[in-house]
Write a protein that binds this DNA or RNA. Structure first.
Lengths: 248, 248
DNA sequence: TCCACTTGTCTAGATCAATATACAATTTGG
DNA sequence: CCAAATTGTATATTGATCTAGACAAGTGGA
């Protein structure tokens, strides 16, 4: 199996394509049982590029913490397992990742009041111009950022939500303080694109990385919209799993 | 708003980052009401690059069919609306896209018998080594390829599935011929990565493009696994919508 | 018609990306 | 210790990418 599919002169450097290829390959048994990668010369031949190009790729992955090279010995995989983020009626950040990481945390990085505009207005069933509270936060697992989410609430219905969230560190608890006993995920839209500058900074991504974006609507148990949120996941650290609940 | 976030020397050419930036910008009102983009000089300043770099980006987008430049007049957006692909208990290709395109088609591009191996074995509840039938197909809307999917069935339970699918052009009908009245989507896993060579060819994507990948398990109404499938969607042509069905 | 604005083309130089070749440094096993 | 295998470093060459500046060519309005 030679010449994995690289493409030249298309704006993506070969070493980056090779890096992506190696990262994918690791998931499908490129490394041996000790986590050792094939030698640079073999990789070069397999990808159909020069050894130095492979070295550039490995160097980038080493910089990301995926690989570690040792002179005379070889190049080894450090770890590599994506978190699984379940999406269903009862999607919640910390609960969802529970067990997969020693510690999950969701920290508020900012909040603001702002008038409602289009995508959110109709989702939450508000009039254009009604005030919203926007909350930005960053989800981490074992200290590594995995998701960046923005949530909008009606300012009229949940005036103290930002403060409550800041104090409790949990949307669920903050909503409980605002009189919402429970809520459910009504719909989720999923898209994917390249990370923008803010994504790269906050999620500590390499440029060119991919983010999976979910747009979600949460309602209370009566079906009234409560929260609209947009979450950007680092695609190389997370995958989403959607469970269709059995008709209960 | 100057200097949108580009990053240099990271393996992704500036012109490609600018192209991605423009594509995103179009979705958030970069073009005016007539679909006209700001002039190249303004774009160059906004992105903090040379006008020639912007021109390379525009040229790439024009080649993709997103933009069209006219000397002396300006650069115009051709259109840009992603199909919405719903995911739920009753996910089916053609039904899901119904109404959004004049014509949707799903054509078989190949099929094979092969022994079961790990991801599929456990999903379908089979023993390693049992024979599977693998079916490859390509989903198109109005002639434009939007998805590429691979489906696996137990060869023992559905010996004639490939032939039935080839004749009917529909998984649902092919399963009906094999005695499965109805089926439901039990779970869906979503990830995203850069398109590989085959993706680029079959889905007619530019290299560096993104594919959203779903891994799905369909079961019959008794909950017995029927089909495991992996589908690659062109992320710039499709977005997924997940509906949590109300407990029925 | 004239002028401002916009896209298209050309040239030249600087930096980055990729190849080719050679050799040094380190580890491992015989 | 020696030899093979492997990663690390150096140098040179070629092509792609990015910048800079100037001007041509088409459009549309005053």
């Amino acid at each position: 199996m030679k010449r994995a599919g690289l493409q030249r002169g298309v704006g993506v450097a070969l070493w980056r394509q090779v890096a992506d290829g190696i990262r994918q390959g690791i998931a499908s048994g490129l490394a041996d049982e000790n986590g050792r990668l094939p030698p640079e010369n073999q990789l070069a031949e397999r990808f159909g590029v020069n050894r130095h190009t492979v070295r550039a790729a490995i160097s980038a992955l080493a910089h990301e913490g995926v690989l570690q090279s040792e002179q005379g010995r070889g190049t080894y995989v450090r770890r590599q397992k994506r978190l699984i983020y379940p999406i269903g009626e009862r999607t919640r950040f910390s609960a969802g990742l529970g067990g997969q990481a020693r510690e999950t945390r969701s920290e508020m990085t900012g909040h603001a009041h702002e008038p409602a505009s289009e995508p959110i207005t109709s989702a939450l069933g508000l009039e254009p111009g009604e005030m919203l509270i926007r909350i930005e936060n960053l989800g981490k697992a074992d200290g590594v950022p995995v998701s960046r989410s923005t949530a909008w609430f009606s300012a009229e219905r949940f005036p103290g939500i930002a403060e409550a969230y800041g104090r409790t560190g949990s949307i669920t608890e903050a909503l409980a303080l605002c009189g919402v006993e429970d809520y459910r995920r009504a719909s989720t839209r999923v898209e994917a694109r390249h990370a923008d500058e803010t994504d790269c900074q906050e999620l500590k991504l390499a440029p060119g990385a991919i983010v999976i974006i979910t747009h979600a609507l949460n309602t209370d148990l009566d079906g009234r919209p409560i929260q609209y949120s947009m979450t950007r996941f680092a695609a190389d650290r997370v995958e989403l799993v959607i469970e269709s609940p059995r008709a209960a």
